[in-house]
């Protein structure tokens, strides 16, 4: 795995700069936390990395994975896995469908099914393939969303307060699971949060995003 780095990034909404030029580098297997007041542009930073900035926000600066500049790649070619604040499981697909959607092409149908089953088992959701995602608890949905991202074999992981909507017990469980999976795969991980517990559990660098004045 390669490092994820950002160089002198600043975002502008309607001519107004959001935060001071930001540079950072996340090494494989490490988790960098980004904290800051709401509205400072934490989610927009992740949108920029994914290539899905809304048209009214403009960006200056660059982002790279290893030596590859990903700034001009279409979103689907960037290879970044992102967990949103909500699980956002596709409501028209069952659990297995959601995971198969994430899983890269290739292999036979049976092998793909088996990989999905194994993935579900690895997070304690054996036999959940046929379930309607809407019937799952918040913690279960979060775990399926994580698996969906991992099966797409990302080069880096972007976490956008993914534990925010969970209750206390689930939050710890899911957080530990996500961090363990990220480390196990040696992924550079960027965590956006305003929860101090998240930051402490991440055991990595912390960047405070300051509003530009």
């Amino acid at each position: 795995m390669m490092a994820l780095s950002i160089d002198k990034l600043s975002l502008c909404i309607n001519g107004q700069v959001l935060f001071a030029p930001l540079s950072l580098c996340v090494e494989p297997g490490s988790i960098t936390s980004i904290i800051g007041a709401s509205g400072v542009g934490k989610s927009s930073l992740l949108d920029f990395l994914c290539g899905i900035l809304p048209p009214e926000i403009t960006a200056a600066g660059s982002a790279r994975i290893g030596n590859e500049d990903i700034g001009n790649l279409p979103p689907q070619a960037r290879g970044l896995g992102r967990l949103f604040q909500e699980p956002l499981l596709f409501p028209h697909l069952d659990v297995a469908g959601n995971l198969l959607f994430g899983l890269r092409r290739g292999n036979s149908r049976r092998e793909r099914r088996e990989r999905v089953a194994a993935a579900l088992a690895s997070v304690g959701l054996e036999g959940f393939e046929q379930r309607d995602p809407m019937t799952l608890s918040g913690g279960q949905q979060a775990r399926v969303a994580l698996l969906r991202v991992l099966l797409a074999e990302p080069r880096a992981l972007l976490l956008d307060e993914p534990f925010h909507s969970l209750d206390d017990d689930n939050r710890r469980l899911v957080r530990d699971l996500v961090f363990a999976k990220a480390k196990q795969r040696d992924l550079p991980t960027l965590l956006v949060t305003h929860d101090q517990e998240d930051v402490a559990a991440a055991c990595g660098a912390v960047i405070q995003l300051q509003a530009h004045v």
Partner: peptide, 8 residues
């Protein structure tokens, strides 16, 4: 957006 980050 989810689908886009999944590489579709």
């Amino acid at each position: 957006q989810v689908a886009a980050t999944l590489g579709v």
